[in-house]
Design a protein around this nucleic acid. Sequence first.
DNA 1: CTGGCGATTTCCT
DNA 2: GGAAATCGCCAGT
Length: 210
Amino acid sequence: MGDGARGTPLRFLKDLLAGPVLPAARGLLGCEISAGGVTVRITEVEAYAGTAGDPASHAHRGRTPRNAIMFGPAGFLYVYFTYGMHWCANVVTGVEGEASAVLLRAGQVVSGLDLAIARRRSTVERDLARGPARLCQALGIDGTAYGADLLAPDAPVRLRLPSTPVLESRIAAGPRVGVTGAHDLEWRFWIADDPTVSVYRRHVPRKRAQ
DNA sequence: CTGGCGATTTCCT
DNA sequence: GGAAATCGCCAGT
């Protein structure tokens, strides 16, 4: 049974996610994520290296109840609550214990448009999943989806490869959004010229900052 | 178009 | 107690 999966799209996706986080992040572009009757084509992601010297990662200071799922195997969903009201979704990547993950920053709603519009205030189709919190809202993802197996057919949140892969030449890279430090790392990836990619805003400290 | 700011809860020091 | 991988609304250019 296990050998029967060799060479299949599922196996390809598993291997992609189990590998280094930067190729995994690039490979997630164009993939489709489905939840709550809505499917979104991923157009923008950010890589986080977990414990491997990335101060911006939630796992940088070690395992906590919130980030525990990141320390497990690849292909599971890490969702976190932030700014008092927003949920954001990550795909856990790499090997067990490494805690790397890819933040899903934006996408294009490709099915379940009515449901997505109902969950969001905006009726502007381009903005339905433009931003990590908006993407979760459009898909109806919240804390109950924490730890979902994205590759299981009966999971509440599912991930699948694109029907037509995104060409490497169409992938753009830049610094991560909202991250206080590590502006030199270009670990944000998006599909060039896609209108659903979120607008880049450099992180501005609210009060005094260094 | 750009930039500023309030909302509101959880997590961690 | 303070910051946080954000968003939507507001004002000014």
